[in-house]
């Protein structure tokens, strides 16, 4: 996260205040400003407001049962969104994430129910299915020279059809009583194993993003592909890598989802692509790439899902829930645009 902080911080300072002021400010003020000025701060503030609001407005929101459920859901979508954050930081987009989730989820259930696989071994299968699906997305995009938006628009339908074929269109249940199917109910303290797994993935991704050449090069492509080529970054290879990573994470999320629910539905993962993209953008990753924030993405998905959960508890019909998610998304994009314009005006 430090990496993204660096760029966002200087960008905001330049826009919001006079540079000399920043130099002269005492270090306490500076630290305070870096927290307040960080890209994640508005999302965090928004999350706090929303959380407080629902806690006061509904009786059910703060109950352990609801929090249990919501953190599980956040964890699964956070894993998908982290992959999406990588893709978007490369100035690409993956709209097949829901379909890959569905395919991995279904394939895994079929292996367990009909082929007698041990659920823990079947997790590996989910990962492989996810990674291969992502790899195919990347390879198609690079070899055909097409944007991933178009490629994944095609593959999302194909992957869903594939899942349908594998499960013969039915809900695959009766998966036995392995401990694997307790991960959504048991855990440590207030957190289920699903939530813990999600948090570990997010933390690892944040570390990975800050510390690897791969991540830096992916963001370099997003920032300026022509320049990236001229510093020796192999664009095609990196794009395939980032799409495969996104697929792998969807596969993992599919496994978590199966463990939590205990059955695979042909409908699973529907709408996840929109949730993931919204989470990434609300979290502060610019759609035109070049930088990305993993913790911001976690905050983004938390905000979106908590709002949907809270509104549902208040009895609002689901179209309204979606509309409000849409409003927040537009607000986040508008905010990014304002910051961008301010930075450009601050240019020497």
């Amino acid at each position: 996260m430090r990496k993204s902080d660096m760029s966002s911080l200087s960008a905001q300072e330049a826009g919001l205040s006079n540079p000399r002021e920043v130099i002269n400010a005492s270090s306490v003020v500076r630290i305070l400003r870096s927290v307040i000025g960080s890209r994640e701060a508005p999302v965090f503030a928004g999350l706090a407001v929303v959380f407080t609001f629902f806690a006061l407005a509904t009786k059910f929101f703060l109950t352990p049962l609801n929090l249990f459920g919501i953190t599980r859901q956040i964890a699964i979508l956070a894993v998908i969104s982290v992959g999406e954050a990588y893709v978007i930081s490369c100035a690409e987009i993956d709209i097949s994430v829901g379909a890959i989730y569905n395919l991995a989820n279904t394939a895994m259930a079929v292996l367990i129910a009909w082929k007698g696989f041990n659920p823990w071994v079947a997790v590996v299968a989910a990962l492989v299915v996810g990674a291969l699906s992502g790899l195919l997305n990347g390879a198609l995009s690079v070899s055909l020279g097409l944007p991933t938006l178009i490629v994944t628009l095609g593959t999302m339908s194909i992957y869903r059809a594939l899942a349908f074929a594998v499960s013969k269109g039915s809900i695959v249940g009766n998966l036995g009583t392995s401990a694997f199917f307790d991960i959504g109910y048991k855990g440590l303290g207030p957190f289920t194993y699903v939530a813990i797994a999600g948090l570990i993935i997010v933390a690892f991704a944040a570390w990975y993003q800050r510390n690897t050449v791969f991540s830096r090069q992916v963001m370099g492509i997003g920032s300026n592909a022509a320049a990236a080529k001229r510093v020796g970054i192999r664009i095609g290879l990196r794009k395939i890598g980032v799409m495969a990573l996104s697929g792998l994470l969807c596969g993992f999320a599919g496994a978590l989802g199966l463990g939590m629910i205990g059955s695979a539905s042909p409908e699973s993962g529907t709408g996840y692509e929109m949730l993931a993209i919204a989470a990434v953008v609300i979290g502060g990753t610019p759609l035109k790439g070049g930088s990305g924030t993993i913790w911001g993405t976690l905050l983004g998905i938390s905000l979106v899902l908590i709002i949907q959960d809270g509104l549902m508890l208040m009895g609002l019909p689901s179209p309204w829930q979606l509309a409000i998610t849409g409003v927040i998304l537009l607000f986040a994009v508008a905010l990014q645009q304002v910051i961008l314009m301010r930075t450009q005006r601050g240019q020497v």
Binding site: K3, M6, S7, S10, A11, R216, M219, G220, S223, N224, A226, A227, A228, R230, P286, G290, S291
Partner: peptide, 11 residues
């Protein structure tokens, strides 16, 4: 063709 515009000096 040169700069990663939204990156910092070190990057």
């Amino acid at each position: 063709y040169g700069l990663m515009s939204n990156w910092n000096v070190l990057e």
